[in-house]
């Protein structure tokens, strides 16, 4: 079970990132818990400078822009 956080204040790119992560996880049969973080102090504490950011099990794996599909596949 992987815990995934999507950091972002609700922009279109954040929603696209969320949908992509969900789709890839399902495809690969990986169980995940998905959490959306939209509080600014919380986002900043992760050290992310540009959103959307993706955090897996407490580690920032991506920041800024929608990740590519192959990048997301590499996380699982």
């Amino acid at each position: 079970m992987k815990n995934i956080k999507i950091l972002g204040t609700g922009c279109a790119r954040c929603r696209a990132t969320e949908a992509l992560v969900k789709a890839v996880a399902q495809e690969k049969g990986v169980e995940i818990t998905l959490e959306k973080v939209d509080s600014l102090p919380e986002i900043i504490k992760h050290g992310v400078l540009s959103t959307p950011g993706v955090v897996i099990d407490g580690r920032v794996v991506h920041a800024g822009g929608v990740p590519t599909r192959s990048e997301v596949e590499g996380w699982f």
Binding site: T9, R13, I44, S50, T51
Partner: peptide, 8 residues
């Protein structure tokens, strides 16, 4: 992107 102006 102005959407991440604050974190930046």
């Amino acid at each position: 992107c102005s959407c991440s102006a604050v974190p930046l």
